[in-house]
Design a protein around this nucleic acid. Sequence first.
RNA 1: GCGAGAGUGGCGGAAUGGCAGACGCGCUGGACUUAGGAUCCAGUCCGCCUUUGGCGGAUGGGGGUUCAAGUCCCCCCUCUCGCACCA
Length: 863
Amino acid sequence: MARGYDFKAIEAKWQRAWEESGAFAATEEPERRKFYLLEMYPYPSGRIHMGHVRNYAIGDVLARFLRMRGYNVLHPMGWDSFGLPAENAAIEHRTHPAKWTNDNIAYMRIQLKRMGFSYDWRREITCSDPSYYRWGQWLFLKLYEKGLVYKKSTAVNWCEMCRTVLANEQVEGGLCWRDGTPVVQKELPGWFFRITAYAEELLSGLDNLAGWPEPVKVMQRNWIGKSVGAEVRFPLVDRQEALTIFTTRQDTLFGATFMVLAPEHPHALALAQGTAQEQQVRGFIARMKLEDRIKRVAADTAKEGVFTGAYAINPLTRRRIPVWISNFVLPEYGTGAIMAVPSNDQRDFEFAKKYGLPIRLAVKPVGTDLDERDLQQAYEGEGVLVNSSLFTGMDSQQAREAIVDFLEREGIGKRTVHYRLRDWGISRQRYWGNPIPMIYCEGCGTVPVPYQDLPVILPHDVQITMKGGSPLQKVPGYVDVPCPRCGGPARRETDTMDTFVDSSWYFLRFTSPGAEDGPVAPARVNYWMPVDQYIGGIEHAVLHLLYARFFTKAVRDLSLIAVDEPFSRLLTQGMVCKETYRCAEHGFRLPEEVDAERCCRACGRSVQVGRIEKMSKSKKNVVDPEDLLSQYGADTARLFCLFAAPPERDLEWSDQGVEGSFRFLCRIVRIIEDQEALFKEPISSVPFQRLIVGRALYRRAQQTIKRVTEDIEDEFHFNTAISALMELTNEIGRFELKGAEDEVDERRFAYSYAVETLLLLLSPFAPHLCEELWERLGRSGSIFQAPWPGYDPAVVAAEEIVVVIQIDGKVRSRLVMAADADETAMREAALADERVRGWLQERSIRKVVVIPKKLVNIVTGGI
RNA sequence: GCGAGAGUGGCGGAAUGGCAGACGCGCUGGACUUAGGAUCCAGUCCGCCUUUGGCGGAUGGGGGUUCAAGUCCCCCCUCUCGCACCA
């Protein structure tokens, strides 16, 4: 038998029982309160890690708790099983991505089951399975019909090592997150989702997401990056065209003394043509094209530029202003051109100083006599307009409105809103993803695959080399197809979809996983959606969570679902961290490579005990859940993850802490085993009013019900819920079962009630053990079919309480009083107290503050 | 630079404006033991006083509000995360 208690046998026994009884299968029952609880599904990398264990343990407590509370709970699990690692692994292990993926899923499914998570496995989804991805293709085509999918050629992040485009979040400091290869910009055709069509709704919708953590909402707001301003036309001197700029500070228009274009701006070279500047401009543009984009965009990159030789007219001052080109203007934001107001914009100021361009003050701080000749830096704040014709003297905020009105009246410009959010490029030049269902015909152009031909099956026989383009290009039977429209020879699209597409709607599919007529079955999806509680890592704050919101709105507009937002409440759990050991010679070391004196076993040098960092293989500070399972079992692993820190905070791993959680469970086993005979006999209940010796224990049990219920329900404070359970356990352990003859019934009743309550309250945290002990207590049926215990507020409230007596805010005495003692009684008792009287000699009482049920504070006038 | 969050014993962490340090880990002592790395019991913020006991100090630093501040307000410091030439 395993140390402490036989968790291996117990856990296997109950996992089998739950599976056989279908305990966690969820069906739509319209008359019941539903609760859709979801944790972010994993990428099947091979084995689960502690981050998964923590994420899913948090979810499972809620799932089990809510079921006991009477909710109809949907708690599904699936696999984010498309993606590049499968192709890398295929090369490394000489296997097929499908086999590697499916083997991983099979293994990880077993691991999750061994953790005892209460999923409805009948609803399992595998992204890489045609039964799932066919509906991804279907949705792609529907969105295409709606104009929400389009193809364009543009500059994208390209990783030479991965041989594919990377999403923005996969670029960290200009390097590929996976292999550290510098990411390059590459002009490439690809498919895009028009997420920008929903920019405003994605932004405003955040205001209604009361159940989302503020940081996540802030990050999404920043990402969407809404700017309200105006587009203004600046006519070019001696030409027909004009340059259009975007600004949020039209109040500073009178201070615009030059213009700046991005090197990529379509007019950039044209303006210089035939001028003395042409060669210089040509050279500058060529150089900028070569320059690394990430570096160019970095804030600390020096501003540099060239004069185009051309002039424009400031439409308000009517003055000629030179047009420049510079690296600090970005082609993709606004119109790729700006008006430069050096007096009121720091970037423009620096540029003007560097190249000796004129500065003209447009807005000055209220009540100052700022002069542009004295400017040491731009004044970017609000203030009063100067040098601004009829707007001079106006408040800058009002002037923004007045000037944009004027621009619109005069036909010079118009109100405009710009977003930083860009359309979502979903083309991946890789094999292991969902095929984009498009066909190119020379005669008919781009033709969608007809719905009846879905799914486009990912061919099995491919050569994955990580060289050249997509492996799919070299699969003849795949690429060459007849055009669905004219029947002539045509070519299939060989890009596959970003895996974030799969995860953008998997939560919908869970509601109706077998649906054959569409991605979802309407009645079922509408019963379950939205997800009431979503749980996952904060690293998805912007991408997955933004994409999923976008998809939900787009699918809603296809009339397939009725909700606006996919996730009502969101919990972002912290990372699982552990200290690192680093040897000067051997780098990061495993704990077993370090001896008791903290020296490297390889070279004997003392290792540096590093910071507490997120568990990662490269830092050699990971703990494998598998080891935990074999040493302590699933209940201990879960319990520790929940006890060591509140869910949203980082969790610091501690082997001794795990040991402590295990000890706690062992203690409960001992308590019950020691009294096994007691529970075998019938126990008659005693009303609370008649409880004397058992009163305190009974009350403590009731108080624990209240605390645990509130801790789980309100704030997911599982750590404090567990500590309350430990206190109850301590109390039970101290309780004396033996006593006078006439007390025996009462003692046995209070004791068994407390033990039973303990098991019920602990069951969501340590389900296997509680199920087992519940059975040993002789209770029939699964503990998870028992209702969550309730409490009587009158019992919870003690009839006597300790009142703190303070003198001038310092505790000087404590008195036991009736809980319902009124202010007068409390004041008198406090003033009559001997210790208090000792302190009060020589002092005059200025005031007595009485807080019922809490304290009395006597404020004196000093000695 | 901007934004968000955090700073409490040796450690993880508790505290509707009302006894700071619950609970756990670790540590100390004791009991039971052939043994203890099992279990049980007691102790464990710091300083001071002669004890039972008591006094003083203590939640990054400094001010303030209040009868009362870890908690509210202002200033500063440190750390973590996110964004960062976004016009």
